[in-house]
């Protein structure tokens, strides 16, 4: 039974869509506005003239392409490592009973409760002697550590959605546990793997705090940190910054388009006991 129906429902949807998408629109609008018009025209919905100069500058004269490459490497690396590890953890949680299982699961939840700012200093001191500060590897390690618990729970709920009888049937059909995992469970886990990859990739893609603290070299910066370089002493170059931000949105947008039909399943997996 729904309270709002038909046209009313569409009105609400449209209002929400406008609310959610307006910042995106504004981002693109500013990126396309010539510098000269940015302040002189006042607040209009669309500038009287459009320019791609900001995009050209960002791509050709700023270090943004380097930032972009760094971000792709770090995000993909994190997503791949986290997903593989999370699959292992999720499978173990789902299929095996072992001493301390509950404790480990509770501990994983607890790690999610701390504000990240709290651990910046200890983390820095931990990574510095290992030579991992100001490296992409260091970033991947840190991102992996922070994303693994949630990813593991996500994977766990996906494994829970796959009936145990499938593996058992495969083991009776002649498989070892590992063969059952590879031949039967893995193909069914693809949506879960896709969803986990997506979540972790996006989280790493837009991470600012640790990238800012751990990376100082210009050629190792990720784009989130790089965006700040458009803030100069004399002011902010809004047009270029928005152009860079717009470009940075493209990869996650592509990624989410590819995995979106799995994501809905990912959010509800485990909600209903199979």
């Amino acid at each position: 039974m729904s309270v709002v129906t038909g046209a009313g429902l569409w009105l609400i949807r449209l209002a929400y869509l406008a609310f959610a998408l307006f910042p995106l629109f504004w981002l693109v609008r500013i990126a396309l506005t010539p510098d000269a018009l940015l302040y002189s025209e006042g607040t209009t919905l669309w500038p009287s003239e459009m320019t791609f100069a900001n995009f050209a500058y960002v791509l050709e004269q700023s270090p943004f392409p380097t930032f972009f490459t760094n971000t792709v490497i770090v995000s993909l690396g994190t997503a791949a490592i986290v997903t593989v590890l999370a699959a292992g953890v999720g499978y173990a949680f789902s299929r095996f009973q072992f001493a301390g299982k509950r404790a480990v699961m509770v501990f994983l939840v607890i790690t999610q409760l701390f504000p990240l700012v709290m651990v910046i200093t200890p983390l820095y001191q931990l990574l510095a002697p290992l030579g991992l500060v100001n490296t992409r590897v260091g970033l991947v390690i840190v991102f992996t550590a922070f994303n693994l618990p949630f990813a593991a729970f996500l994977m766990h709920s996906f494994f829970e959605g796959i009936p145990r009888e499938l593996e058992q049937a495969a083991m009776i059909d002649g498989c070892t546990r590992f063969q059952a995992l590879i031949r039967i469970i893995l193909p069914l886990m693809l949506p879960g793997i896709g969803a986990t990859l997506g979540f972790v990739f996006t989280a790493a893609w837009s991470e600012l705090l640790f990238s800012l603290m751990l990376i100082s070299s210009e050629d190792l910066k990720t784009f989130a940190v790089g965006l700040l370089s458009f803030v100069g002493r004399s002011g902010v170059d809004w047009g270029q910054m928005m152009a860079a931000a717009t470009l940075a949105l493209i990869p996650p947008a592509i990624f989410f388009t590819l995995i979106q039909r799995y994501l809905v399943g990912g959010l509800t997996a485990g909600a209903v006991k199979a």
Partner: peptide, 17 residues
Amino acid sequence: PPRARNISMVFQNYALY
């Protein structure tokens, strides 16, 4: 292990791949 017992099993929920 199950695979070495030369048995087969039909499950309540069928367990079809």
